[in-house]
């Protein structure tokens, strides 16, 4: 019994100073990198790295909806397929749709259906494909964020970009953007998607329990974070198309912008230290 108590103290997800296992504060996001227009064949695409998540999104359309009986004579369908690669998690994920991915596909397509001007394209469908290449909790938020950039890149008319972020509760503290450990061993996880311009909430789910006050706190954290993510999305889209006249006349493609990734961890990771030890043992 004592051992267990001892163990529980050891794996505190957040310490007295409010610092989490990976060194973040309760209202810190993981580093996010967004790139628009990464795929040639799709009408629009985006790639998002969000902490340990790596997500690709591709958009086709508006195009003829198939099968025909699904066509809506008044508006376009917004269809989404969220899929996790077999290698995206540590145990191989059985490929193909499952209960979870079907649910996520549904809520994401509904989130986008509320911003896309679907009535401009009757009888068509706008198809969104989200491929999770590497998962580290919060993939639906990363996927939504990527898909939103991909939709804009495809030139689909919409009211605003959709921005998404999750909040949750770990060790009794409401925190922003849970990672894998926090999601697995925490008390609650609450992803949401927001239309930043109007503040509309287009996706809201919760796993676990939060009191009303905690829920309010989680909402505030997520809404605050979506403002930052929104800027990154816009920046990614602008970067894709901004080229100066000189660059155009010189026929040189714009240099890729330097990736700015704030270093959160100590650069000498455990593995590097381990390698250094090995060298010492082998060396003279």
């Amino acid at each position: 019994m004592e051992d267990i108590e001892h163990f529980e103290r050891e794996v505190k997800l957040i310490d007295e100073n409010g610092v989490r296992l990976d060194g973040r504060k309760s209202d810190d996001l993981r580093p996010i990198r967004i790139e628009a227009g990464v795929l040639r064949r799709a009408d629009g695409s985006a790639y998002v790295e969000w902490g340990g998540n790596k997500v690709l999104a591709a958009v086709y359309g508006p195009r003829e909806a198939h099968p025909r009986h699904l066509q809506d004579p008044a508006r376009a369908l917004v269809q989404c397929r969220y899929n996790m690669a077999p290698f995206s998690v540590s145990d191989r994920k059985r490929p193909g749709p499952d209960r979870r991915s079907v649910e996520i596909s549904k809520v994401i397509s509904e989130a986008f259906a509320s911003v896309v001007f679907a009535e401009q394209f009757p009888r068509t469908s706008v198809d969104i494909f989200i491929e999770v290449l590497q998962a580290d909790a919060g993939t639906r938020c990363a996927g939504l964020t990527a898909a939103s950039v991909a939709l804009a890149d495809a030139g689909v008319p919409m009211k605003d970009l959709v921005t998404s972020c999750a909040s949750g509760k770990i060790g009794g503290v409401v925190c922003l953007d849970l990672d894998k450990e926090e999601d697995n061993f925490g008390e609650a996880d609450c992803p949401m998607a927001i239309v930043p311009r109007t503040g509309e909430i287009v996706l809201l789910q919760m796993d676990g329990h939060l009191t009303y006050e905690e829920f309010q706190k989680a909402m505030d954290l997520s809404i605050g974070a979506t403002k930052r993510i929104y800027e990154m999305q816009r920046d990614a889209l602008r970067r894709r198309y901004s080229v100066t006249l000189e660059e155009i006349l010189n026929e040189s493609p714009p240099p890729p912008p330097p990736a700015e990734e704030p270093v959160l961890r100590d650069p000498t990771s455990e593995y590097e230290r381990f390698e250094a030890d090995l060298d010492r043992e082998v060396g003279p």
Partner: peptide, 29 residues
């Protein structure tokens, strides 16, 4: 970028824009 404000109520929304709550916004990139 979609959702970006491009004008107030003094301008008319043309193609690629929409009018909402007294302002004009871009609907397309």
């Amino acid at each position: 970028i979609p959702g970006e404000a491009v004008g107030g109520s003094d301008v008319k929304p043309g193609p690629g824009t929409f009018f909402e709550g007294g302002r004009v916004y871009a609907s397309q990139l």
